[in-house]
Design a protein around this nucleic acid. Structure first.
Lengths: 343, 343
DNA sequence: ACACTGAATGATTGCGCTATCATTCTGGCG
DNA sequence: CGCCAGAATGATAGCGCAATCATTCAGTGT
């Protein structure tokens, strides 16, 4: 009998208030409510106040899904990192989120693992959300991923790596250079017989390439290597250190993460090896605990906060512009070698 | 002259293919394409194949914004944690994401900090995305937050705490019980004069309450306390340890996180105190490095992965049901006291 | 032969909002 | 006093998709 009995084809899903409900209560047009909420400077103070009242009276919560469809702006930024279980990436996530949220963006988190295949699937679904921007870890993607990202014309910052051919913007550091710097440091200290324990990860691989290159220049060819699965952990480090030390007479072990290095320290100590005299150890990441380990761990410091901050800034600037235009902005934030007690 | 010159009121924002474009190429109705993509079992194999071809020919990427609006299902789960900079919460994020993504959900990450005020704002904007589910850290929210969440009727799991009055589902542990257990442990070891270094966080506070309660039962009233800001760090721990030790003759210091405990260890060592004979130290969290510190840190282990897994499972089950109905499912996953070398 | 069933596909409508233009209203000025 | 600029507000028309119901078509039983 009432209006509501005239059952429409698709019923309203929720009973919650819509913009039109607020408009009715406020006695204005829906468009005016929309403006009062999104562009308040276009609406008179009196009207704003009436809208404000109507909003609280109706308990209105805007529907950004509808808003995004109508305006083609999702106010969503996709943040794609391999994992958050690693403090370095967690720091990036923390920083990027902290900068974007106050600017009205929300973060869609994607964990892409360490393989291009995993990444491809995540990128695909992320694009279907029509994010206004994307922060993507690494520069080595599958051809499909690259193509899709470029075709989407969504502002994009690749981070945590360097490349001659970024898809769009890029903020990171050279893993190859890290490897060389580590080799340089160890050579300078007189260590010659090196070994490596590394996660199976393309970027770690490139650090090893850099390391190997520098060692080769110094006439060192052998570089015994053990790979570990993800996530890296102390026990992995310890186990692989044991293997390396059983088979090779090493003076130093380079690890692809601090946590592995902690395992190596444990193994060295259990063998009664003196660190760094019998065995030097290098980590990667300068985790919060690196300085606190005993002996304090020498490592490579990456400033995740700076990377995150610059990435967010670049993205915000780009998203503020009307049209997407590839800027090719590239920034190398570098790294620093932290020399503590294990080298 | 062409159709496209008949400029419509609002131009299509992107030039990318839509469902109708795919339909035209495939020679079927848009609805059939929608079905082929979302409910393939309803479409004949021949048609599926034509649609598949048309999709790749047009480079179609579905628009989930439009899909969500039309179907009232966003396939978005909001994950609200204080921070990801803390390994414990990162573990939850990792686990929840890992379980939800394969089931077709994406994760909207919200970092709510440690104050109800921050949380309130984030909850507000998160609800405007119309998530299909919410995972929320903690049980102590502002009245507004509680009301909004309940009114939204979105399936919700609170985690990381215990409460008699959850909004909906709850997976966690009792911080009060942790405090009591820590007190129990230290008392059993003969430590009497305790001090506390704690982050300014409501849950840490409740652990302290539990600690104090148990101490009072043992006739101990004094409990010198130092608070640190967030994020907790080694230097904070060290500085506050110095203050405590300067003013009180303490036998043990309890910290609200492992990283603070590391700082206390450093301070103790620099004073030449023997651990645990001169000073016992307890952490919280059992971070990856707790076992590797020297001396190895006694701490409280929380299984973030289990909390994350159960939360995701509960949420998935609830979201699969047609109607939202408060289940009040509550699960205490407990904790364990890890007795290492600092107590 | 004919109604009947179920599978496959199609046509229509609206999800809730904002872009765009149209209209109204105000005050200022020649 | 009429005209105009600018501010404020309103009316209209989609955004791209999926829910719903309608239609078509083969296969079945009698």
């Amino acid at each position: 009998m009432s209006d509501q009995d005239a059952k429409p084809r698709s019923a309203r899903a929720t009973g919650s208030a819509r913009l039109t409900d607020v408009a009715r209560v406020a006695g204005v047009a829906p468009m005016t409510v929309s403006r009062a909420l999104n562009r308040p400077e276009l609406v008179s103070e009196a009207t704003r106040e009436r809208v404000r009242r109507a909003v609280s009276e109706t308990g209105y919560v805007p529907n950004q899904v509808a808003g995004a469809l109508a305006s083609s702006r999702s106010r969503l930024v996709a943040l794609l990192v391999p994992t958050v279980a690693h403090a370095l990436f967690a720091e990036v996530v923390q920083t990027v989120t902290g900068l974007l949220v106050p600017r009205g963006y929300q973060v869609l988190l994607g964990l892409v693992g360490y393989t291009p295949a995993e990444e491809e699937g995540v990128v695909e679904t992320v694009l279907s959300r029509r994010p206004d921007g994307i922060v993507l870890t690494g520069c080595h993607h599958s051809a499909v991923t690259r193509q899709r990202l470029a075709a989407s014309r969504v502002p994009l910052v690749e981070i945590w790596d360097m490349s001659d051919d970024p898809i769009d913007m890029l903020i990171g550091f050279s893993h190859h250079a890290v490897g060389r710097a580590v080799a340089e440091h160890l050579l300078a200290r007189g260590y010659r017989r090196l070994g490596v324990i590394s996660a199976d990860d393309a970027r770690a691989e490139r650090r090893i390439d850099g390391l190997r290159e520098r060692l080769a220049e110094a006439g060192q060819q052998a570089l015994p290597l053990r790979r570990v699965g993800t996530p890296s952990s102390m026990p992995w480090g310890r186990e692989m250190a044991a293997e390396l030390l059983d088979h090779h007479a090493l003076e130093a072990i380079v690890c692809s993460s601090d946590i592995l290095a902690l395992g190596v320290i444990a193994e060295a100590q259990s063998r009664g090896l003196s660190i760094p005299d019998d065995l030097a150890i290098m980590g990667f990441g300068d985790s919060s605990y690196a300085a606190a380990s005993f002996p304090a761990l020498s490592t490579v410091r990456i400033d995740g906060a700076t990377i995150g901050r610059r990435a967010a800034e670049q993205l915000l600037e780009r998203m503020a512009r009307p049209q997407f235009e590839r800027s090719g902005a590239v920034e190398d934030v570098g790294f620093s070698l932290v020399d503590r007690a294990t080298t």
